[in-house]
Simulated scan of single mutants.
Amino acid sequence: MKILKYVGIGVLILGVLWAAAFFIKSNSKSAIVYETETPFKTDIEQKTVATGKVVPEDEVLIKPQISGIIDKIVLEEGDKVKSGDLIATIKVVPNEQALVSARGRVSNARFSLNTAEAEYNRNKTLFDKGVISNQEFLDIELRYNQAKQELTNAQNDYQIIKSGSAGGSATANTNIRATVTGTVLEIPVKEGDQVIEANNFNDGTTIATIADMTQMIFEGQVDEAEVEKLELGMPLKVSFGAIQDKEFEASLRFVAPKGVEEQGAVQFKIEGEVQLNDSTFIRAGYSANASIILDKKEDVLAIKEALLQYDKETEKPYVEVETGDQQFERKDIEVGISDGINVEITSGLSESDKVKVWNKTEPIKKEAENN
């Protein structure tokens, strides 16, 4: 029985040793061999990208001079027009109450004129006979002339309300014409729509929008962290989402003095004048990106930005430099501008130093084989 007991204990100890050896082997990994890279000379450009759209520099809204109903539209969106070209015609639909009131004013003015005319004729006879003075006759003649003018004004008001023009023809006000030369961007109304004129209380109905498509500007936004680096006249590279593999030159002409908060970040509006060519047609409203070079340095010492490490307390950058075979020491450095890939080294490194690639990991395949 004792022999069996000792045999059981021995088997148990061997099992424990085998399990420990298996656990150690299955969880062991080979030591990582760190690679190194050396600093190099290169050109670095610090850029920012502003997102936005391209729009015509000037858009003119064509509005009617009189209220009415769209009778006919003679142009379509996209047509090129010259100043004075006919766009649409309006049929005047007078307000019944205003029309009746205007007709009443005409009748009253005519009654006043008849009375003034009778008085004038009677007193003219007396004046010719020397019965009344010259001053008295002049006052009567003035009232007579004022009555005639009042009738004319009332008749003109009536014609304007009735047909849209004092002369009886509504051509001047009911023919909607282009006020500038350009391209019709939009006609937001259709035949039969009712439109109202612009006045002190209403902007009026827009009949058409016209713009010069040869003068376009980029409108975008930049973050507040970069706005102080912008200067008017800086070159921009504008690319459009609808036009692949093509960039257009532009120059910065406006930076907003006031920012707007969007999703927790303050954005500032910028504008750039885009230089177009005759071979490419740019449509208003294209989404666009503008690349802006904030700073540029040529032939400077640099390393890949991924090699940088940062002190947890001071947050200052440093790298690890090889001193022997797989032996490294920390070296504090000072950095300059970065393009997101390479970063300028202003002090702390030389071209002969070998910098540790600290974030290299073992391939997934090798780890799986070890497990």
Rank of each mutant, 00 (worst) to 15 (best):
D128G: 05
A21Y: 15
I217C: 05
E45I: 09
E320N: 14
E305N: 07
E96N: 07
I62M: 05
A368K: 13
K72R: 13
V55T: 07
E249Q: 03
A19W: 09
L138M: 09
P317R: 03
E186A: 08
S347G: 00
V33P: 13
S101Y: 12
N199D: 15
D71M: 11
P317C: 03
V189P: 13
S279Q: 10
I333N: 00
T42N: 03
E96V: 15
E362H: 05
Q149W: 08
E249N: 04
N95I: 05
R105Y: 03
V106M: 00
R253Y: 11
I207H: 04
Y158V: 09
E315K: 14
K360D: 13
E322G: 03
A265R: 12
L252T: 04
G104R: 02
K258P: 08
K162E: 12
K312L: 12
L301C: 07
G220Q: 03
L113D: 00
L252P: 08
E141G: 04
D128L: 05
N108S: 08
K269I: 11
N370R: 14
E322M: 02
A20R: 11
D278M: 06
E320W: 12
S30Y: 14
D325N: 12
E334D: 10
Q309N: 08
R105T: 12
P64M: 03
K360S: 15
K312R: 12
L138F: 02
E96T: 13
I187T: 09
Y310K: 06
Q146N: 09
S239H: 09
N27P: 11
P317F: 06
I217Y: 05
V357Q: 09
A256I: 10
A242P: 00
D325K: 09
P39N: 09
D278P: 00
E119F: 04
D299L: 03
A170V: 01
N173C: 06
N371R: 13
E141I: 01
S165I: 02
D85W: 02
L17P: 10
S279W: 01
Q267I: 11
I187S: 05
E261G: 08
G272S: 01
I196N: 14
D79G: 02
I187V: 14
M1K: 12
T51H: 11
F22P: 00
I270N: 07
F254Q: 11
V33W: 11
E191R: 08
A118R: 07
R110T: 01
K82D: 06
A109Q: 00
F268R: 06
A166Y: 06
A31I: 07
